[in-house]
Amino acid sequence: MGILSRTSYIIKSKLNSILNRAEDPTETLDYSYEQMRDQLQQVKRGIADLTTQKKRLEMQKRRLEENVEKHNEQARTAVKQDREDLARKALEKKKAKMNQIEELDRQISNLQNQQDQLVEQKDTLQTRIEEFRTKKETMKARYSAAEASTTVNEAMTATGEEFEDVGRAIERAEERTQDMEARSAAMDELRETGAFEDVLTDKDQIDQELDDLATDSGVEAELETLKSEVDGESSGTTSTSAESATESESTEAVDPDVEAELSEMQDEDG
């Protein structure tokens, strides 16, 4: 199974798991996008590891090549000194190093092929991630628009039990308001008629009527008294008039000098 196949399988597994428990698809899209980015980072780290291994083998190959040159020079020197035995040993070591170099070349070639494949897969995955990001943002925008439209439509239609409850609540509030207004008007009317005074006392209706009779009797008695006083004042006025007439007659008989003195005394008193 290739890197992309394993990546796709892992992403699908995680995506299915998220879809089963997620309610907001935008969160699912964001999560999937982050998972794909994580997979891309893993591919990049894999390429870096392969490159490091290849560089190590190449360094080892260069050291072996240097040894090959060294053994080659050793063989030449031994031949010049007529030491075939040393020359043979040097050539044997050279041959062993050459065999190791051939093995390293095969390993380096394999690592290079793997590196090239991973780089190609990395580029493909990165392209797919960018495409997914574009689709993700488009889907999120569409979902947000649809969600907003649904909310507005539900508010505009004003249907459902919640709106019915609101209507009933308004009706109850209207009825209670009307009842309160009626009670307030009734209380004002009772206060104006004086009914509160009866309510605030401990007397029953009989006691109240007896009190009213006693009040009426007292008023009648006082009225009779006023009438008598008024009649008495009227009689006194008549007597006073007669006395005034008598005094006038007496005054006419008084001496003028006496009358003058009396006037002066009245002025002084005044």
Rank of each mutant, 00 (worst) to 15 (best):
L4A: 14
L4N: 11
S5I: 09
I11E: 01
S13F: 08
L15D: 12
N16T: 05
R21N: 14
E23M: 13
L29M: 13
S32N: 13
E34I: 06
E34P: 00
R37S: 05
D38G: 03
L40K: 03
V43P: 01
K44R: 12
L50W: 08
T52F: 14
T52K: 04
K55D: 06
K55H: 10
R56Q: 08
E65D: 10
E65Y: 13
N67G: 10
V68R: 03
E73A: 04
Q74Y: 11
R76I: 11
T77P: 00
A78T: 00
Q81L: 11
Q81A: 09
D82K: 07
D85A: 07
L86E: 05
A87G: 08
A87E: 06
A87N: 01
E92M: 05
K95V: 12
K95I: 06
K95C: 02
A96I: 14
K97P: 00
K97Q: 07
Q100W: 01
Q107Y: 13
Q107P: 12
S109L: 11
N110E: 05
N110T: 08
D116I: 15
V119M: 12
Q121N: 11
Q121G: 14
K122D: 02
K122H: 04
D123F: 03
L125S: 02
K135N: 15
E137Y: 05
K140G: 03
A141H: 04
A145Y: 08
A146Y: 00
S149I: 14
S149L: 09
N153E: 12
A155V: 12
T157M: 15
T159Q: 11
T159I: 05
T159H: 01
G160Q: 08
E161F: 03
E162K: 08
D165H: 01
D165R: 04
V166F: 13
V166E: 14
A169P: 00
E171N: 12
R172F: 07
E174C: 09
E175P: 00
E175C: 11
T177I: 09
A182W: 04
R183P: 00
S184R: 11
A185Y: 10
D188W: 06
R191Y: 04
E192D: 07
T193G: 08
T193E: 08
T193Y: 09
G194Q: 02
G194I: 01
G194H: 00
G194D: 10
F196Y: 06
T201Q: 04
T201Y: 00
D204R: 00
D204L: 00
Q205L: 09
L210M: 06
L213H: 04
S217D: 13
A221Y: 06
E222V: 06
T225C: 08
L226G: 15
L226Q: 14
E229Q: 05
G232V: 09
G232N: 15
S235M: 03
S241W: 07
A245S: 15
S250Y: 15
E252W: 03
A253G: 11
P256K: 14
V258N: 10
V258K: 02
V258R: 07
E261P: 01
L262M: 07
S263T: 10
M265H: 03
D267L: 10
E268I: 13
D269R: 04
